[in-house]
Amino acid sequence: MKIAYYPGCSLHSTGIEYDLSGRRVCQDLDIELQELPDWTCCGASSAHVTDHVLALALPARNLALADDLGLDVTAPCAACYNRLQVTRHELAHDPKLRQEVEELLGRPYTGRAAVRSLVDLVASVGEEAVRQRTRRPLRGLKVAAYYGCLLVRPAGILQPDDPENPQGLDRILAAAGAEPVEWPFKTECCGASFALTDHTEVVTRLVAQLVDGAQAAGAEAIVTACPLCHSNLDMRQETAPGATPLPVYYFTELLGIAFGHSAAELGIGKHSIDGTQLLAQHGWSQAV
């Protein structure tokens, strides 16, 4: 399978380990990624806060690039994925809006390229493929699969299996041998971009709720598919003195471990909260 790859700005900086691990895992699963040439920022929340048409034009440019390649496109970042998918939906349903956007772009937009999240892409390869590729099942590793907002909402457009209790990520992790726990905050918000403003206390509060919930459900780690969620959970987790913080992994990192890569290859050493120790306890740090 070949698909266009839209890393988005975060995967080239704070989310670099998601980029590293995502590429490795795709390679292992025979998914060929072709990075969109000259891709640009999707505009994220800042664009739609500012103007609806601008917020559609910025992602639409990247969709048009994928059109040119004649490929569907995957966006690992949940925020980028959300903006691309919402843009594609809105432009498909409103010809007038599409015309306005094309005028801003100065290039045609066809909407041919479909958008897939990386979770969805891996799921489409199949749990069986994941199981077969797994060299060391993550046996005994209790994880809380965290979807956040942008992979599942708006549900009318993104069409998750269940917007309140999705299972896609859980199933992939289970296929790699991990034990996803049942927990009630899978799709609660982490505070997103407010981490960078002076409302960091909101993010700290929301992150604490997520971490408490995951711990109460018996999880040893939280697993995400979004660089914003990851950096919030990884950098804004406040731990009581003496308590151990909960490591936060990208799902591709754990798949990479299961597929036999080393923690270093996957960029796991780049986390703020040490993610290597837990893996070492299980004897999974080195490549096999």
Partner: peptide, 8 residues
């Protein structure tokens, strides 16, 4: 109403 957890 998945948010009410009936059945779960």
């Amino acid at each position: 109403y998945s948010e009410y957890g009936y059945g779960r």
